[in-house]
Design a protein around this nucleic acid. Sequence first.
DNA 1: CCGTTTATTGGCACTAGCTGCCATTAAACT
DNA 2: AGTTTAATGGCAGCTAGTGCCAATAAACGG
Lengths: 224, 224
Amino acid sequence: MADVVAENGAPRRGRPPVSGEQRRRQRLEISRHAVRLFAEQGVAATSGEQIARAAGVSERTFWRHFPHKESCVEPLLTRSVDAFCAVLRAWPAELDLIDHLRTAYQPVLDAGSDDDVEAVLAVVRLTHHEPALRAAYLMLRERDEDALAEVLAHRMALPADSIAVRVQAAAMSAVLKAATDDVAAATAGGITPEALEDHREHLARALSLVLRGLSDASSLMRER
Amino acid sequence: MADVVAENGAPRRGRPPVSGEQRRRQRLEISRHAVRLFAEQGVAATSGEQIARAAGVSERTFWRHFPHKESCVEPLLTRSVDAFCAVLRAWPAELDLIDHLRTAYQPVLDAGSDDDVEAVLAVVRLTHHEPALRAAYLMLRERDEDALAEVLAHRMALPADSIAVRVQAAAMSAVLKAATDDVAAATAGGITPEALEDHREHLARALSLVLRGLSDASSLMRER
DNA sequence: CCGTTTATTGGCACTAGCTGCCATTAAACT
DNA sequence: AGTTTAATGGCAGCTAGTGCCAATAAACGG
């Protein structure tokens, strides 16, 4: 029987490491419990032990999955930004961004179930009262900004670390953040399709405005 | 002799509370020691007790001044952004931003002594390896974004929470962040006047580009 | 100079977020 | 069953950070 081999050719033996996919699912599951508790009783009042118990794992393994308490929100949040990046990646070269978003972007919904959408919005709302969560949120957004930059770089046929791309990615990210804060506030009393519609339209308009202003990036390329 | 009275009219007695100015100076002084230690031996390896000892206060009062270890960098960093805001505030209505910056903006130098400038840049460099510091840095930038928004709102005669203003402030803040990261990297081996010149020119160009794109904000005002 | 009043400081105990270490269990293959 | 490696759980321990109270400092009026 053919041996299972690692990429480097060494024949693997013993229990195989858990797949990245499975690990992500585990983290996501814990994340859901953590966010629920955070929303119910606040971050400070929620202990790591409590989250671990709710998620059905030992405290020790909980800390192994999440280096800080606040990073519990990460798995939930990244999903929604990943979805946006995917939409961006699928943006046809000839189409106006605003039109592409109107047809391809389901605001936060791409992220997963309705409960997850509500959870994501709840976290965003929480970040306005919980500084620790806000910090984690901002860190996440900056990571996602890099992902955005890669997509833009590919589209503009420029290096991802060029100034033009970085500025554009930063501007888009800023718009995305503002729009997300808005929709979170607007849906505080419950999610309505209208609110999401507004959000998409709103976002599409602001984004294309930003891109229009920056698309003339040639003048930026002279620098350095 | 006339009694010292509080704003509400109640005659004040006993030891008066320390002035905000004095408090800020104290925090700044501690901040300098903390940043030096962070740079020398890393954040994790620097304990609150150590910072307190270096600054000549008890650990307890240290924690009273700074709720978290990482917030030690705040006093130093805010100074440089405050300086930028002041420059923005002094921006004459008829002048092009790029020209105004060329004459009025001394990159990070407005902030204080040469040592402080070096310290600010050192912190920015540190944030790239120390996640906790990065998070604090991002929080700070977001606070400063609000200050920026107020300046812009006044200039554009729009409410500070209007979408147009917020997007513009966010875009400017993003540019400022990227430029700051750049100059910090460029001066890693020592500060040269050329590097600062480049930085200013660079920043001025990117900023006016962003503003040009967004100055046509009327289309944004239709939303909502 | 002395008492009174209030603000700040320092000391100490204590909670909670995390980490390192080791024993135990689980999942593969022979 | 036996071996090998990965994941988990339990426990000790360390540090960041807080609450509480005593001590000191800075104002004032006598």
